[in-house]
Amino acid sequence: MKIAFTTSGDDLNAPFDSRFGRSPKFLIYDLDKNSFEVFDNQQNLNAAQGAGIQSAETIARLGAGALITGHCGPNAFKVLNAAGIMIFNTKASTVADALESYKSGKLQQLDNADVEGHWA
């Protein structure tokens, strides 16, 4: 399975970003191959509206089966849910920490949006 992480950097040691829709980048980690790729999210970072929806569409297209982020708003949740993507939230400081927490089963799956729209 592929997991999407929200980050502002380019590798596993990069800072974890708590925002989903307006995360600067997505790191897509492939659990089967133990490799990753980073995708820019600049377009949604600057979107006037619908950043969460667009970002959800982006990671669905990238083949993610799970998302690990800080928070998830109601519209993004609807799209992720429709796309069958599991959502986990964490306060990890780096992507590597977040990945480690996931692997050791410490992360709780979100069954609903945990913030209001436009919370940031």
Binding site: A47, Q49, G50, A51, I53, Q54, E57, N75, K78, A82
Partner: peptide, 17 residues
């Protein structure tokens, strides 16, 4: 405006957008 989103299935509509 991301008011309608589709993934090869029925599109999701966000009327407020």
């Amino acid at each position: 405006y991301s008011a309608i989103v589709s993934f090869g299935s029925k599109p999701l509509v966000f009327p407020e957008m």
